[in-house]
């Protein structure tokens, strides 16, 4: 098996009395797409927020290439090589499309500046499928294009691990197909990706492995086909449906 890039050990997060994530353990290997799935409120977002440094775990360890990152401030973690997109797209409204991507290149894991950063940003925009609109204000973009720009910004710091927080949510069926192909092509480039996702088609066709969470804990781990056939996983999803 390939080298372990990210190592999550016994990570727990409490908010006051509520335990949002409990004793999570999993590894992410190089060139792998790992899906974190589970019903709403199962702690997926909390988990990746801890990896990216939005907040610190209450207990446990997260190692990136052997170095502890748990509890470090977000900018340090970003520089060590974790990049992310956000559940609700966050672009920089006063900056042009290309500047939005340069923002990712200038301060992240592999830092670029000036002409080099700009040409790199253009290259990445081309890569995610929007070569033509690089100088437009971001307010004029379509929804999927805002997602593309955000993805290019995350790629621009050449992360060791890329976190995609429901990147495919809200796309229409045609866009979804485009989106899945795009992420697939990123995997083929040899990137390491953690995907938090609800869209089942995407999980089946993209993920090498899945970690399934329910009520903050890991209830299954394995290939998408295996975990989606797991009795406990089905119960977790259907049970959650009944609650809802």
């Amino acid at each position: 098996m390939a080298r372990v890039v990210l190592e999550v050990r016994d990570v727990t997060k409490r908010f006051g009395g509520l335990v949002a994530v409990r004793d999570m353990v999993f590894d992410v290997h190089q060139n792998e797409v790992l899906g974190i799935i589970g019903p709403n409120g199962s702690g997926k977002s909390t988990m990746i927020n801890m990896i990216s440094g939005t907040f610190a775990p209450s207990a446990g360890s997260i190692r990136l290439n052997g170095q502890e990152i748990a509890g470090k401030p977000a900018h340090r973690i970003a520089r060590q090589g974790v990049a992310r997109t956000f559940q609700l797209v966050r672009l920089l409204p006063e900056l042009s499309v290309v500047e939005n991507v340069v923002a990712g290149a200038a301060f992240g894991h592999r830092q670029r500046w000036g002409a080099e950063a700009e040409s790199f940003a253009r290259q990445l925009l081309e890569r995610v499928g929007m070569g033509r609109q690089v100088n437009m204000p971001v307010s004029s973009l379509t929804y999927i294009n805002t997602k593309r720009v955000e993805l290019a910004r995350a790629l621009a710091c050449e992360p060791e691990v890329l976190l995609l927080d429901e990147w495919l949510a809200g796309l229409n069926p045609t866009e979804l197909e485009t989106g899945i192909d795009l992420i697939k092509s990123l995997r083929d480039d040899g990137r390491t990706i953690i995907l938090v996702e609800h869209v089942m088609d995407a999980i089946r066709s993209l993920c090498d492995r899945c970690v399934v969470m329910s009520s903050g804990a890991k209830i299954a781990e394995g290939t998408p086909a295996d975990v989606l056939a797991d009795a406990e996983v089905i119960r977790a999803y259907l049970g959650a449906d009944e609650d809802a």
């Binding site: 977000a74 900018h75 970003a78 900056l95 894991h109």
Partner: peptide, 13 residues
């Protein structure tokens, strides 16, 4: 000034 959260996650102190 645009979005402090994005700034942090892009590696800006």
């Amino acid at each position: 000034g645009n979005d402090e959260t994005v700034a942090k996650h892009s590696g800006i102190d």
